[in-house]
């Protein structure tokens, strides 16, 4: 069955408007093959002089500044900054928990496999919207962007590319992928790292409602490989506020043990546990100097993304000045 593709369903005009003032810049220097706007650590085929540094015996003489040597009889090497393309990899969680949503949608509004089944705006819908927004922005900047939809394994993948049809491929992939299973972020990160030899910016979109040890392991590997990571935690408002009442059996969408409880009685303790879990997640992110944003799936995705990009833009400019 052909799934109708409604790009506007994922990239609402207001979201693009909120993101437009910003350019997606990697906080770290990334390697790029093309001529993009991102600073590259490679200084061989430099376009713009950056600085001098003393020559160390054994180094190549290729970048030696002969003019300085002629005038001062001292050996200095020239260094250049090169604007490069950015590789952006978007890892979107498609585990069962992402099927959860408590916000109703209008009929025929489109959406993903998760949203169509329930008629609600699921966390996966929200994750898909953020994913395509980021992809659109990257492609507009002539960056290469790739997508990996994962759960307990990689469910769908769109290889990195800056081609014109790339964005449509990503939307198609997000709209049709089956959402289910448990979330294994470490495995997904491993797979990305195995296919990426250049440093990249990784967006990991998930609710992160699982033990954080697995994620921590994956992030450590990404850090070791020099990648930058942005964690995007997406939670439904019902999860955030827990406005439920009455005696209920909570059945785990990822197959965990069910919980019988009075919602009113449980509310306070649950909210405390949620706060504690989110604090732990932030601690994990900060341990690797990664960014993290929290998104309420009922709210517009524009403001949190805009805040993230603004923050990263400011950090990049500050670093350039220094």
């Amino acid at each position: 069955m052909t799934v109708p593709l409604r790009a506007e369903a994922y990239l609402a005009p207001e979201t693009l408007a909120q993101l437009a003032p910003f350019e997606l810049r990697a906080r770290m220097l990334v390697e790029g093959l093309g001529s993009g706007m991102h600073a590259s650590p490679r200084q061989g085929q430099a376009v713009e002089f950056s600085e001098h540094r003393p020559y160390t015996p054994g180094e190549s003489l290729r970048n030696l500044d002969w003019k300085v040597f002629g005038r001062s009889d001292k050996l200095y090497l020239k260094r250049y900054e090169q604007e490069t393309n950015l590789d952006v990899l978007i890892l979107t969680d498609a585990s069962s928990s992402m099927r959860f949503g408590s916000l109703g949608t209008k009929a025929g509004w489109g959406g993903t496999d998760a949203g169509r089944g329930s008629g609600t705006w699921t966390k996966f819908d929200c994750a898909a919207a953020i994913s395509v927004a980021i992809a659109h922005l990257c492609l507009e900047q002539r960056d290469r962007v790739g997508l990996e939809v994962y759960a307990d394994e990689v469910r769908a993948m769109v290889r990195r590319s800056g081609a014109k049809g790339q964005w449509r491929s990503m939307v198609q992939s997000l709209a049709t992928v089956k959402v289910g299973g448990t979330s294994r972020p470490a495995r997904a990160i491993d797979q990305v790292l195995a296919t990426t030899d250049t440093r990249a910016l990784l967006f990991i979109l998930s609710d992160f409602l699982h033990p954080l040890e697995d994620l921590q392991e994956g992030l450590a590997k990404a850090r070791f490989r020099g990648h930058d990571v942005v964690l995007v935690q997406i939670l439904d408002r019902q999860e955030i506020r827990f406005p439920l009442e009455g005696f209920r059996r909570f059945e785990d969408m990822e197959g965990g043990s069910p919980v019988d409880a009075d919602a009113e009685v449980l509310r306070e303790a649950y909210l405390q546990e949620l706060a504690r879990h989110r604090a732990d997640l932030q601690r994990v992110a900060r341990a690797h100097a990664y960014d993290i944003i929290e998104v309420d799936s009922h709210a517009s995705v524009g403001p949190p993304l805009a805040a993230l990009l603004s923050r990263r833009e400011a950090a990049w400019r500050s670093r350039r000045r220094s």
Partner: peptide
């Protein structure tokens, strides 16, 4: 008629932790 209302929940991990913490208080309250 203590039949609970079934509610699908993304992950009962946090609920279970909360429940473990306040199981005594929850029972007493009820």
């Amino acid at each position: 008629l203590r039949r609970p209302k079934v509610t699908a929940w993304p992950s009962t991990m946090l609920l279970q932790r909360a429940l473990d913490r306040m199981r005594r208080r929850r029972t007493l309250d009820r």
